[in-house]
């Protein structure tokens, strides 16, 4: 393998006095699928949000696609172009139709022609299974459909890396599957993925590596087989026993 696409070295973050990230070290190779899980407040969302600078880290180094995240706005913009993100609350733009939601980034940032952007948006909508919703507004769609539009919107920028921040946590049970199906397809297509999620079925099926985070640190990491069958740390065991009980 060549150079890792994401390199994090000793990443720290504080919210006021609260030490949210306590020295994260991680290297992600191209095409790797990583699932991050852990109790609420453990810093997992904060961590993946530092990768595209939605949160600023105060110490340590983050290098994405060979570019180091610094205060330089150009670096931040360059990294954000290559990193797509899907949010728990979808965060679609409610005043724009689905098609405009998807094409806005490519047209404004990638400077594509409108026609090209719309063609690619249409292909993406077909890929996530809702080509017929292109002219609707987000408010007219179900949660699952909105989240699939959000995935298409992130993919439209043709990113190297996709970040998922609890993408199914705000969904009704019957809609979780349609979103996970899209994510599985994406993982199998070779996309580099970092996903914060507690969908253990998804993790078992496609994750190359799982990270268990607690209190701002990565407590344990390893392939799903090891994490599920033979966890090394007591905290991992305890957490898994709690979420897998039912």
């Amino acid at each position: 393998m060549s150079e890792p696409v994401i390199i994090c070295r000793d990443v720290h973050k504080w919210y006021g006095q609260f030490h949210a990230l306590r020295g994260i070290d991680l290297e992600v190779d191209k095409g790797e699928v990583i699932v991050i899980f852990g109790p609420s407040g453990s810093g997992k969302s904060t961590f993946i949000r530092t990768i595209n600078r939605l949160e600023e880290h105060q110490q340590g180094t983050i290098i994405v696609n060979g570019i180091e995240l610094s205060h330089d706005v150009r670096n931040i913009a360059a990294i954000r172009k290559e990193v797509g993100m899907v949010f728990q609350q979808f965060n679609l733009f409610p005043h724009l139709a689905v098609m405009q939601n998807i094409t806005l980034g490519p047209i404004q940032v990638r400077k594509w022609k409108k026609k090209k952007a719309e063609e690619i948006a249409m292909q993406l909508l077909e890929r996530v299974g809702i080509p017929e919703q292109a002219e609707k507004y987000p408010g007219q769609l179900s949660g699952g459909q909105q989240q699939r539009v959000a995935i298409a919107r992130a993919l439209a920028m043709q990113p190297q890396i996709m970040l998922f921040d609890e993408p199914t946590s705000a969904l009704d049970p019957e809609m979780i599957k349609e979103v996970l199906d899209v994510m599985v397809e994406l993982a199998e297509s070779g996309m580099t993925i970092l996903a914060v999620t507690h969908e253990m079925g998804f993790a078992r099926a496609v994750a190359d590596r799982m990270l268990f985070m607690d209190a701002g640190s990565i407590v344990e990491s390893g392939p799903p087989s090891q994490i599920f069958e033979n966890p090394q740390e007591d905290r991992t065991k305890l957490f898994l026993s709690q979420i897998l009980q039912h």
Binding site: R53, R80, K81, G84, M85, N91, F93, G105, V109, R153
Partner: peptide, 10 residues
């Protein structure tokens, strides 16, 4: 704001 940032809008 975050969604706009995430697609690298200026």
């Amino acid at each position: 704001y975050e969604a706009a940032d995430a697609i690298a809008l200026g």
